[in-house]
Every structure is written in C-alpha cells, then in structure tokens.
C-alpha cells in the first residue's frame, strides 16, 4: 500500500511520472466500459484520452479485423503523456467529466483543514489540482485530502465528522469546464 497513490480501482494503466520511472496507477472499470461502448457504437476506429495533470495518456483502438467476425476486440495502449493541455481537457471532458476524490485512509472526514477552521470548499467552487478539499482525522492525526483534478465541486458526498472507509468517494469534481 502506498498512501501517496490514489485509491486503486479495478484496472491498471501506467503513468510516466517524471519520465524516469513508471508508476502504476489505475482507472475505473466503469470509465473504461463507457469508452469501449462509445468506440463500439461508433464508426471511429480509435479513442484517445489524455489527462496531463495525472500524466495519463490512454488509447483504445479497434483491432484490425483478421476476419469479418473479429471486429469486437480492442487494444489498450499506454504512451508517454503529451503536454497539450487544451486538447487533453477537451477530450477528457467529452468522455467523463465527473471524478470522485476518495478517502486515502480510514478515519473521520472533516470539511476543514485545521480544527476550528472553515469548510475548505462548497458545491460550485472551482478547485485546482492539489487544492485541499477536506481532511481525515485518524488517531488525532489530521491528513489532508487534495483534489487530483481541476474543475468545479459538483457534490460533497459525506458530512463533516462522518466516519469514512478507505477508498470511499468523498467529493465529486466536474472537470467539463476545464477546456
């Protein structure tokens, strides 16, 4: 378990962090299924998703048919990220603009960053990558919860003081306006 990494979902892709070593991160099966369905139901042969902030570049391509019955297979390719933020944001938003920030550990969720402080964000607020959106207190240690993506706070799923489990979605960020 590396608590610097996002909560793992179900399917892995690879990210080149600083270009020197590959870290393993993950994307949800739900997101991938939507992409596959989109590809399946369309005439296009390839879908490309880039999230520069997360260092992700995912390509789904219809495999070339060896015969007329083999059109339903896909290849998932991971290539180094491209620093084209405008294109990246547009494509990401078109496919799935809602991202859940999940609990990195077990504890009590707080909307504040410091005791007696105000709520860090409210629904409708714009957030940047790395911006604090709450905290989790466990054995009196307060751990920051940061947004992993830029966008607008669409939902705050847990109340202040509520116990949360590892990986539980806390805040939903809508990144569709980040074009």
């Amino acid at each position: 378990m590396d608590y610097n990494k996002p909560y793992p979902n179900d399917l892995e892709y690879h990210v080149d962090g600083d270009g020197s070593s590959a870290q393993t991160q993950q994307v949800s099966v739900g997101q991938l299924q939507r992409l596959v369905r989109l590809l399946d139901e369309s005439d296009v042969s390839e879908i490309e998703v880039k999230r520069v902030e997360e260092g992700m570049h995912l390509v789904l391509r219809k495999a070339k048919a060896q015969s007329s019955t083999e059109t339903g297979t896909y290849a998932v390719q991971n290539v180094p990220p491209v620093a084209d933020s405008a294109a990246t944001k547009h494509e990401t938003g078109a496919v799935d603009a809602r991202h859940s920030i999940t609990a990195p550990l077990v504890g009590s969720f707080h909307t504040w960053g410091k005791p007696k402080g105000k709520a860090l964000v409210a629904v409708g607020d714009r957030v940047k990558v790395g911006q604090l959106v709450g905290s989790i207190q466990s054995l009196n240690v307060i751990s920051e919860v940061e947004s992993s993506i830029a966008g607008r706070v669409a939902e705050i799923l847990v109340q202040d003081g509520q116990p949360v489990e590892y990986g539980q979605p806390l805040v939903v960020i809508d990144s569709s306006e980040e074009a």
Binding site: M1, D2, Y3, N4, P104, L105, V106, G107, S138, L139, N140, V141, S143
Partner: peptide, 11 residues
C-alpha cells in the same frame, strides 16, 4: 515520508 497511514506513526 511514510508509505503507511499516518495513524501508524502514532503507534
């Protein structure tokens, strides 16, 4: 720079 949850630092 722990790779484990901070509550284990408490212990």
């Amino acid at each position: 720079r722990p790779v484990f949850p901070p509550y284990q630092l408490v212990m």
